[in-house]
Simulated assay, not measured.
Amino acid sequence: MKDHYIKQINVLRNEINIQIANKFEDRLDNELTTKQVLILELIRTGVTSTKDLADKLNVSTSAISQLLNKLEDKRYVERFINPKNRREIVLKLADKANQYFNDLDSLKDEINREVYGKLSLEELKQLASILGKLQGIVNEGS
């Protein structure tokens, strides 16, 4: 009996994600790959060196350098020499990346209003409670 509901939840969750992606696809920046977005997210949160990015993503520094080259060519990332340690290159988000995140935040707000905003306060509380419980279950296994 539980298996039926679990399968139904998984199907519905996937369908919702696909429908949201299709509905807002024209507003998404399709110029970036998933890995490039991940790198931008890490730089946004304060990871500012190639070595630190490589460590966080568990890949080689040369792989990160290749991704950074593409991001720099597309004007999402800027590289600077650290004035305190001239051997170190510091990464910074360029204006285009900051605009990307501003647009993304606006899009998320719109999706939240159009999807979650149509639920009642009680439904939102129940959903938040269930998702919190699921997160706790997942964290127990970690």
Rank of each mutant, 00 (worst) to 15 (best):
L124A: 05
E72C: 04
I137V: 14
L68D: 01
E123P: 04
H4L: 15
L124G: 03
L131I: 10
E15P: 00
E88F: 04
E41P: 07
T34Q: 14
K118M: 05
E15I: 10
E78R: 15
R113D: 07
D3A: 14
G132P: 01
P83L: 07
F101T: 04
F101K: 02
K56C: 12
R113W: 03
N69S: 13
L134N: 05
L134P: 01
L68I: 15
L57A: 07
R86F: 09
E140H: 12
I89S: 06
V47N: 08
L93K: 01
L67S: 09
T50N: 06
E78Y: 13
E78I: 15
I20G: 02
R27A: 13
L68G: 05
K70V: 15
I43M: 02
K51E: 15
A97L: 04
R113N: 06
E72Q: 12
V138H: 05
E15C: 10
V59L: 09
Y5H: 11
F80W: 04
D95P: 03
R113K: 09
Q135E: 12
D3T: 15
L93T: 01
V37W: 00
L134M: 09
L42V: 05
F24M: 08
Y100M: 07
L12H: 08
V59H: 02
S120D: 09
N82S: 07
R113L: 07
Q36R: 06
L42H: 08
T34D: 15
E25L: 10
I6C: 07
S142F: 10
S62N: 08
E25D: 13
N139K: 13
D95F: 05
R44C: 03
T34W: 08
E15T: 11
D29A: 11
K35V: 13
L42R: 11
N17V: 10
T50H: 01
E41V: 14
N85I: 09
V47M: 09
I64W: 00
E114N: 06
S62M: 06
L53D: 01
K125M: 02
G141D: 12
L131N: 07
K7R: 14
L131G: 02
V59A: 04
Y5V: 06
E72M: 11
L127C: 02
I81V: 00
V37R: 04
T48W: 02
L119K: 10
T50L: 05
A128I: 06
E122M: 10
K96E: 10
A21P: 00
I130G: 00
K92T: 07
S142C: 05
I111W: 10
S62L: 05
E140S: 13
P83R: 02
L40T: 03
Y100L: 13
A94L: 06
